[in-house]
Design a protein around this nucleic acid. Sequence first.
DNA 1: CTAGGGTTAG
Length: 591
Amino acid sequence: MKASLKTSTQFSSIYGFRRAYTISASVDLPMCEVPDQRHMNRQRASGKPIDQFSLMKLIDSSISSNGFAPTSLLFHEFSRSIDVNLCNTLIRRYTDSKNHSRAVSVYAQMRKLNILPDSSTFPSVLKSVALLWCGEVGKSIHCNAIQLGFTSDVYTNTALVHMYGICGQPDDAHQLFDEIPDRNVVTWNSLITSYTHNRMFREAIDVFREMLASGVTPVEVTMVGVLSACSHLGALGQGKWIHDYIVKNRLRVNVYVGTALIDMYAKCGDIDEAKKVFETMGLKNIYTWNVLISAYAMNGQGEAALRTFDRMIEKDLKPDHVTLLGVLCACCHQGFVEEGRRLFSSMINQFGLQPKIVHYGCMIDLLGRGGFLDEAMEIIHSMKLKPDAIIWRTLLGACRFHGREELGEFAFHKLLELEPTNGENYVLISNVHTQKKKWTEVGEVRELMDSSGIKKIPGCSSIELENAVYEFKASDPLKTGNEEIHKMLQDMKNQLKLAGYVPETEIALYDINEEEKEHNLIFHSEKLALAFGLLHSSEPTLRIMKNLRICQDCHQFFKLASAVYKRNIVVRDIKRFHHFTGGLCSCKDYW
DNA sequence: CTAGGGTTAG
């Protein structure tokens, strides 16, 4: 029946998952250290078979004091006492205590001893398989379930949908889902999270719509999945609808739902609403605080992020790696160099957290943008971790900012080794040379790019008006179809020039992160979306999303447009938000 | 009695 299932060998690399363990269902288990050897020896010496009750007690005490029971020995010594119920309990205990590889090992032992699994074996063991990201093992357990006739058990099927989803096989999850005769709300939730886990957010929302259409009533967990999808898509209209749905249907705003709501509003650029949800929440945990801190950081409210952090510390909450990342990022986006240095050292000294590569990256960005490139270099040399491509790219970006050609070349050569096909790197070094007007070097980079076949990513922007999303790609002014918008843009350009707009052509000439050359600057996708928004909406705030970073020229253009056309413009680009109001941007041009 | 949940630099 499952002959069409794909193998899962690639999932770990495609989705960036780290394969933590590899377990084969037929592998011999390693002998574990035996914590209660004497007790077992006594039992063995007495020659009496141990009864199930004593065995479970033994397992329990062993798990609670050592975190595990000597599984293989138990199976070996006491196999006569072991039946399916005992195995199920053992699997569940291991799953609950996050000892997933042992849970799977128990299942493997069961199969070896020919103890037939029952309908409650599969859900528990599959949960562990999912958390171990072992799609291959999951598939073989799925085959067992089919052979043993558990194809219509909804618990098993739901666990399988979840397992395939978590293991990076959302298509298999969906295919299986379609074959399940009696799906319930948990089955639907599993399919939705299959998609969110695999960054297929539109599909997740489609499934949610289908779920509503089929008459299944969503619950809190459903909302968390769909809200997460809305966050990633920047779908504010959709997200608000979910929020309304929660209120109207009296679903609880528990800590999961609340955190997901804050994140949704933050990632859709509505920071005020995000804050409101936070203030009305009863129970908050570290996730909630972290989400609010990075909400402020990405929306250009660095001070608020730091104040939130202080509030958190006052409440005696212990910050974690994500918290520190949020505050460092806030400092970075606002140029708070001194504050960033202080936080970085308190991370280690006060909070006892060992910085990860991301924290170093953030510090290098902060120092680099601030012009402290030598200090950034010192950090790179002093860190125990091997600098990755992102570290070097961040440094290269700072070199462009401050015209440090030599150091830039150094970083670029590191990048050529680490990721020779990433076009961004070529663009950055090309811009370093452009600034210094070293046209020979610029030409060389160009050639290197062409010969390596590196292509630019097309820019695409979208704007949501009255529940519809309109997408724009950088357009060719000679093509027909967008006359209205093109005419509007020409008018805007003339208007804004009166307010001081000067098209910036130099950088754009070689920047593949932006769509078009000099004469086409005016047809950048975000400008098209803005013109469309101004023409077709009278809302005070226009929200635009872009798949790449906003370019320098558009940034200037939008600032002036916010003043001339008296609108707030919120742009979410691939990195962060820009809130344009009255001729200024929340990023204070520091990005 | 067993299945489903939120955050992360450039």
